[in-house]
Computed example of a mutant assay.
Amino acid sequence: MQIIRFAHLKPQPWRNGGGVTRELASHRGGTSAGATSSDGGAWDWRVSIADVTSAGEYSPFPGMERVLTVVEGELLLLAVDGTEHPLEKYRPFRFSGGAASSSALPTGDVRNLNVIAREGAFKAYTSIVELSKKRAHPVFEGQLGILLQGQAAVSPGNAGQDSGGGQDSGGGQDGAPVALNRYDSVVGSDSQTPEILGRGFLAVASIDPLTS
């Protein structure tokens, strides 16, 4: 069971220098979820969290499709190719990475979850899930579960088996639940599917490969 601890992630400057991003996971070639790249966008998909503290332009990503979700703050005014879109908290919005885009902050700073995937190779989705203390939410292969708000813990689906490598192997003794902090991420698996219980909201970023 692999947990990516948000507090351990290093902020990276935007490609255009207008802000900072913390990369949760990316994929390029043989690199998989939970292994980050630092080569300025030479990846097929990426999941990241960006702090937006001033109005301005966004970095262009030609050939990519983006799904942006405000996860902290009230409102982001996103302009895409001259059309303005008011984005409220927890409402994912899809747009072309190659479009001219910029944002304004009418209610103050925001934090965005960004899921970006290469067009024709992958399709990205973001969903917001309300957690329950009685019914665990599974995180499957190709997904990343990010705790946005509240208190939650994650357990491996098959307690007692060896867990995979990662930033934090995470599994307690005998499969005991492991507490998650805000914006910590759980890497999904089909063989030992992590299960999250708690109160609050979870973002599930899904990356589906496209067949030719």
Results as ranks from 00 to 15, higher is better:
A203D: 07
E88S: 14
V154L: 12
P138N: 03
G157T: 11
D109F: 02
V204G: 05
A136E: 14
S102F: 01
R182Q: 15
V110P: 05
G73F: 01
A136R: 12
A152P: 03
E84L: 06
F95E: 04
T69C: 11
L87V: 04
A100V: 14
G150I: 07
I116Y: 02
V20K: 08
N112V: 15
T193P: 08
S102N: 09
R28C: 13
S155N: 05
G97H: 11
G150D: 11
A25K: 07
G29W: 02
P138E: 12
S169E: 10
G157R: 09
G63F: 13
F93H: 14
F93K: 00
I116R: 03
N114L: 05
G108L: 02
Q143A: 03
A25E: 01
H27N: 09
A25M: 01
G145S: 00
S169H: 09
R182I: 14
E119S: 11
G145T: 00
I196D: 13
G73S: 01
A99T: 08
P209V: 10
T31G: 13
Q167H: 13
L131H: 13
I146E: 02
D162F: 10
E72T: 04
T69H: 06
L148Q: 12
R199T: 15
S32C: 04
S185V: 14
L148H: 13
S189Q: 06
E72I: 00
L75V: 03
S155H: 02
G120I: 06
Y58E: 02
S32V: 15
D208G: 02
A124Q: 13
K89S: 15
S206N: 10
Y90G: 06
S155Y: 02
A50K: 11
A117G: 13
G172Q: 08
R5Q: 06
A117R: 05
G56F: 03
K10T: 14
G166L: 07
S101Q: 00
L210P: 09
N181Q: 13
G188M: 06
E141D: 13
G164T: 09
G63R: 10
S163K: 05
F61D: 05
V20S: 08
L87Q: 08
D39K: 03
A33F: 14
E84Y: 01
D44R: 11
K123Q: 11
G120N: 12
L78F: 03
G63T: 04
N112F: 01
R66G: 09
V139C: 04
N112M: 12
S101I: 04
R46H: 08
F95L: 05
S26A: 15
V154Y: 12
E57N: 11
A50H: 04
R66D: 07
P156A: 11
P86D: 07
L144N: 11
V186C: 01
S206G: 10
G188P: 06
A50Q: 01
T126N: 12
I128T: 09
A159Q: 12
I196G: 00
N114P: 12
R182W: 02
